[in-house]
Design a protein around this nucleic acid. Structure first.
Lengths: 206, 206
DNA sequence: GCACTTCTACCGACTGAACGGTCTAATTTC
DNA sequence: GAAATTAGACCGTTCAGTCGGTAGAAGTGC
């Protein structure tokens, strides 16, 4: 990535343009997969020429790293605050709902990023360059598990296998990046609430 | 793909060798993604040389098509039989469990195939060459939805949004291809039952 | 049961296109 | 006029796929 401008004014401009460019890259990656997207695809997606593109992304893999960091960092931060901060809901069910809403909100606003994250998980596990994303993912999963275990500890929940339950919710939400439509029947909050209600109540009568 | 042998004896031999080769390809695809896997990767994975590989797979994309067809065809067939055949369980809960077990069993025996399927979904939606896989996927999802709606109709289930519930279960199971370990703590049936129990009962007490 | 022809499985050098990335220079913005 | 931004020709590499070939198994006629 080219050295960013020194002057603060220009720096801000550069940053916002860079985010535009990276968002376009994320959309392209989500559409065709990281390896399935060529530099020429990114050129078309961003509207830049070859040189201009490299000015902002440095390299293809650097773009992916940035995209995933920009996704997981804020998500983990927001979720941690919502679940373990001073304003966190008292009940485990409330914390679960808060966390899921934030997470689905992230799917809504960064759908392409989440889709890429899901698609490239395997690659991510192997490559040492993406250890930050990997750590964030693990921390997020640990946070979810803590909420579930908390509910069990206080007697609010009955969960035979908290790990499996966490994986179930992770599956529901992460998978939603594949089908969620911003202008669809349900918005992110409705989907989040639907998932949480399902998890809390189940479907069987009585 | 090279023309298969005419003689039935040799044909059988060819077919079984081809399945070996395609399984190895599926494993490689699952590991690095379809586009992330080069022909040289497939050569290493199969132990064949370039020519020998092409003798069995025809082309890289033909290999993917075969892999996905071999996954979805049998899955749809088995699930349909389990849910709408003569021996199908009487209760909707039983049918849901039967279907989920078959599906998780497929994840267990064809983990690589399912992972590839999940990874390449987006590509699949676009390319007309994969309409068969796409149709099978839709049929499977429709089957699941029918079971859920049935349970609602008979009063067995209360489901505010059956479509979302179907997507939730689809997410849980399909996502499991990313974390399921054949020699892990839980086998496929235990995971399937865990998911179904979660869906039926939920986690909240009383 | 042997000679001969055909078929099958596999090999690996080779090809042209597409790939990711670099560099110099021109243009725009402050 | 200095710094930042964009352009696009260019480079070496890697890509998916082809092709002519060979060893040996299978099939056939006598």
């Amino acid at each position: 990535m080219a050295d960013p401008p020194k002057s603060p004014t220009l720096r801000r401009k550069y940053d916002s343009r860079q985010r535009e460019v990276l968002d376009a890259c994320a959309r392209a990656f989500a559409e065709r997969g990281y390896h399935g997207t060529s530099i020429d695809d990114l050129i078309e997606a961003t509207g830049l020429a070859r040189g201009g593109l490299y000015h902002y992304i440095g390299s293809k893999s650097e773009a992916l790293t940035r995209i995933l960091d920009d996704l997981m960092g804020p998500l983990l931060e927001a979720a941690t605050a919502a679940v373990e901060g001073p304003d966190a809901p008292a009940s485990a069910a409330g914390r679960l709902r808060a966390m899921t809403r934030i997470w689905m909100h992230q799917v809504e606003t960064h759908r392409a990023h989440v889709a890429v994250f899901e698609q490239e998980r395997r690659t991510l596990e192997r490559d040492p360059a993406w250890s930050a994303v990997r750590d964030d993912r693990r921390a997020f999963e640990a946070l979810l598990l803590r909420v579930l275990r908390d509910g069990v500890r206080t007697g609010e929940f009955t969960i035979p296998d908290p790990d499996l339950t966490a994986l179930a919710l992770l599956g529901m939400v992460n998978h939603s990046a594949l089908w969620f439509a911003p202008d669809g029947r349900l918005d992110a909050e409705q989907v989040a609430d639907g998932f949480v209600d399902l998890l809390l109540r189940g479907v069987r009568n009585s």
